[in-house]
Nucleic acid binder design. Structure first.
Length: 497
RNA sequence: GGUCCUGUGGCCGAGUGGCUAGGCAGAGCUCUGCAAAAGCUCCUACAGCGGUUCGAAUCCGCUCGGGACCUCCA
């Protein structure tokens, strides 16, 4: 099998993935800021890195997946009056800051569960790691790369840039960052415009505040990820992920802080997912074009014709490569919904099928085609996690599976080995790696029993050409949202809308 | 303004210089008591203009369009 290659944002090319410690992978993904509800755009990184995590596990790696919860409010750094998103919202909603944070954390966890994402191995919170952040800031000050002004601490970018390539990750030219012509307010404390805060002095009305060597304040945004990643994954770790919009300044700053503190570049492979757009424009609060996950699941949004199952969203996201933008529309979601249903029904049929060997039926051409389609799944995933191509191959197998079910192609057209491989590999991919699951709720034994009874009665009626009875059963079930389908083999299948 | 990405059939989207990805929609056919599925077939596109090449959606240049980051942002 080919090696796993990943696109490293830092080198801007695909590289063969080699973990620091054989057999183990340390992966850090920037988690949500729990000051509000998650929207569709937020779903992309968590689903993308979920699949990456699942695939790494499939390859046999033991993965430590760390994803933080940002629950300590950031301040708007420049150009605006300092304010704390979380504490501001808390006042509006008359909630304790931690109460608010808990509410949105719970909601986030619920949504992640709906998406069938594997929970991270460690989910550290920023507020739970204030001590670690302070310690890290102290080290940076000791090393001479940060300075204190009026109870705030800033990272000295100019000094750092003199001996390190600040800006490489995000493709920034350091001189452009340093020599700005723009006059900005609220940054007179900084020695240079490009410096960023490690610790910020808290104004009296600021609710979230902690004691530090520099007075009462709160941590800068970037330091939490550096501190928590270092604590749980070490000074150097394999993968750091997040949205492309975090490249600058967040990840660039993380590199600088960690490099000074730990004397080595922190991350070996930087992986960034692209944005979800809506009418070609990034979905984001500042554009006023977000669709919250709860709105998506309920269909309660002007742009949505109906509610969409979380699995449809997951499938929709996996149909494109994670580094491409993905344009949202109701139409695109409808297409995904139909596609997923077709795929899932074929998948379930395949798992229910059993093999009957008959050598004279062997179709070498079909055998070769199926083997190739199956083998390519790993090739595609190894090529920078190409879920879109893997899904395309699975879709090419769907007509083969359906034909077998309809007996227009005998199951024994494939060799026993290939048929078994098809079953096992699809199970691994559809459920294990792509993390899809059924979008209908029929996992109820009593309901299944009742349905079987109705199917038996309908079969009897059809046998007697009593179409009044057979149609009554089918039509009334349809009114309840249960679709009954006669299959070519004489069997009947059903599903709930 | 600076840096970078991008422009694929009705829609969404893969695409490694040569072998029509795939999904959805549409059309026709087959199967079928009817229906719904399903199967088969068709729709063979790469913003425009040049260039490199035996050969370009894919490489280069220009033009036009769209977007991201440079401030919080997944």
């Amino acid at each position: 099998m080919s090696d796993l290659k990943v696109y490293n944002s830092y080198s801007r090319q695909k590289e063969v993935f080699t973990p620091l410690t054989p057999g183990h992978v340390g992966m850090y993904v920037c988690g949500p800021t729990v000051s509000g509800e998650s929207h569709l755009g937020h779903a992309r990184p968590y689903i993308t890195f979920d699949v990456i995590c699942r695939y790494l596990q499939h390859l046999g790696y033991k993965v430590r997946y760390v994803r933080n919860i940002t629950d300590a409010g950031h301040f708007e750094e420049e150009g605006r009056e300092a304010e704390d998103k979380i504490s501001k919202k808390a006042v509006l909603e008359k909630l304790e800051p931690m109460e608010l944070v808990q509410k949105y954390t719970n909601l986030f966890h619920w949504a992640m569960d709906q998406f069938n994402t594997v929970p991270p191995s460690i989910e550290p919170t920023a507020t739970g790691h204030i001590v670690e952040q302070i310690e890290m800031i102290k080290k940076i000050i000791e090393a001479g790369y940060a300075y204190e002004v009026n109870g705030s601490v800033y990272f000295d970018v100019k000094k750092y840039a003199a001996s390190h390539d600040y800006g490489k990750l995000s493709g920034r030219v350091i001189d452009d960052l340093l020599e700005t012509t723009r006059e900005l307010e609220g940054q007179e404390e900084k020695r240079d415009r490009s410096d960023f805060a490690l610790w910020k002095n808290a104004a009296p009305e600021h609710i979230m505040r902690w004691q530090s060597p520099w007075g009462v304040g709160f941590p800068g945004w970037h330091i939490e990820c550096s501190a928590m990643a270092t604590k749980y994954l070490g000074a150097q770790f394999d993968i750091h992920g997040g949205g492309m919009d975090l490249l600058f300044p967040h990840h660039e700053s993380e590199i600088a802080q960690s490099t000074i503190c730990n004397h080595s570049a922190p991350v070996r492979y930087w992986i960034h997912n692209n944005m979800i757009t809506i009418n070609g424009r990034k979905m984001g609060k500042s554009y006023n074009n977000v669709i919250k996950l709860t709105e998506l699941f309920s269909g309660n949004h002007p742009l949505l014709e109906k509610a969409y199952h979380p699995m449809v969203i997951r499938f929709f996201i996996l149909q494109t490569h994670y580094r491409s933008t993905l344009d949202f529309s109701n139409e695109a979601l409808l297409a995904s919904e139909k596609g997923l249903k077709r795929l899932w029904e074929a998948y379930e049929k395949l798992l229910a099928m059993s093999y009957e060997p008959r050598e004279e039926n062997l179709d070498k051409e079909l055998e070769a085609r199926c083997s190739k389609l199956i083998a390519e799944l790993d090739e595609f995933m190894n090529d920078d996690f190409s879920t879109a191509k893997a899904l395309a191959n699975i879709f090419e197998l769907v007509p083969v599976i359906n034909s077998m079910k309809d007996k227009t192609i005998p199951v024994s057209a494939l060799s026993a080995a290939t048929f078994e491989l098809l079953q096992n590999k699809l199970k691994t991919y559809v459920e294990g790696i792509l993390g899809l699951k059924s979008i209908t709720e029929a996992d109820n034994d009593k309901l299944k029993g009742v349905m079987q009874l109705l199917i038996d009665i309908r079969k009897e009626a059809k046998g007697k050409k009593d179409f009044v009875t057979s149609d009554k059963i089918r039509n009334q079930l349809a009114q309840l949202g249960i679709t009954l389908k006669d299959e070519k083999s004489g069997e009947m299948s059903w599903n709930i809308e």
